[in-house]
Design a protein around this nucleic acid. Structure first.
Length: 256
DNA sequence: ATGACTCCCAGTGGGAGA
């Protein structure tokens, strides 16, 4: 089973690239973030034609998530139950016996901003809900754009980024909180090349200089951990002519 | 360097992203 996550930064712009990528990699589930489309504009016919079922939860201009699967997803949930959130950031479904939760976690903008307060509250709600979900579904994966670089080795210049958004101790504590409820960072289950990033700023020739952060993650429960045979970041789409600023992250699992 | 780019909605500029 192949699971993947990709922040596409506008599905309207990136749709051809997503269709190409699906064709090439044939994931069993692909979670998309930042679709930036209202539900009526979601290109579901194009995904159907590509052999994928789709579930989506969008809004105008910002945010928006989708779950593309080869088999139909069941028990689909949009947003975090019980959290009154006007922003479309979560889509979850059960796919081939695995609970797949796709999330676009808040950016937070700056540590002293209202958006940071929202990010902290949102992450509290997510952790509580995922802990509950994991009790019901021992085989669970939480994939998405976390907007958190968990450790200094996930940052190209940890000194410059120290205390900055995506790298604050509070955000990193939230990431560890997800580990403490029994999740494992699939990427770190394996030896990885140093300077592995999933996002590079559009500015400053950051991709060419490999100046990035690892902020897109696939976390899996203890029951799923032994099944993970690889986890990689696919940098190739970042080399496209009009790329997203994020690259897809892919996990291969030895489950039917 | 309060920048740089890209996307969106707007409307000939500004917010947000990360």
């Amino acid at each position: 089973m192949r699971l993947a996550t990709w922040n596409v930064n506008s599905l309207a712009v990136r749709l051809p690239q997503v269709l190409d990528w699906l064709q090439l990699h044939q994931p069993d589930a692909l979670c998309l973030q930042e679709t930036k489309l209202t539900d009526d504009k979601f290109p579901h016919a194009e995904f159907t034609a590509a052999g994928y079922f789709a579930q989506w939860h969008g809004q105008k201009t910002y945010n928006g998530v989708a779950l593309l699967t080869r088999a139909p997803a069941t028990d689909v949930v949009r947003n975090i139950p019980g959290l009154d959130d006007p922003q479309a950031r979560v889509i979850a479904g059960t796919v081939q016996g695995v609970r797949v939760i796709g999330a676009y976690m808040p950016n937070g903008q700056a540590p002293d901003s209202d958006k940071f307060v929202y990010k902290m509250r949102w992450l509290d709600a997510l952790r509580a809900w995922v802990a509950t979900e994991a009790r019901t579904h021992p085989m669970l994966a939480l994939l998405g754009d976390y907007n958190i670089a968990p450790e200094d080795r996930d940052v190209y210049d940890p000194v410059a980024w120290a205390g900055q958004i995506l790298c604050t101790p509070q955000e990193r504590a939230h990431f560890r909180g997800l580990i403490e409820i029994g999740l494992h960072d699939a990427f770190r289950l394996f030896e990885q090349p140093p300077k592995s990033w999933s996002w590079w700023d559009y500015r400053n020739l950051a991709f060419r200089r490999n100046q990035g952060l690892r902020i897109d993650h696939i976390l899996v429960t203890e029951a799923l951990r032994p099944a993970v045979v690889s986890c990689t970041i696919d940098k190739l789409p970042r080399k496209n002519e009009r790329p997203s600023d994020h690259a897809p992250v892919v996990a291969e699992l030895s489950v039917p």
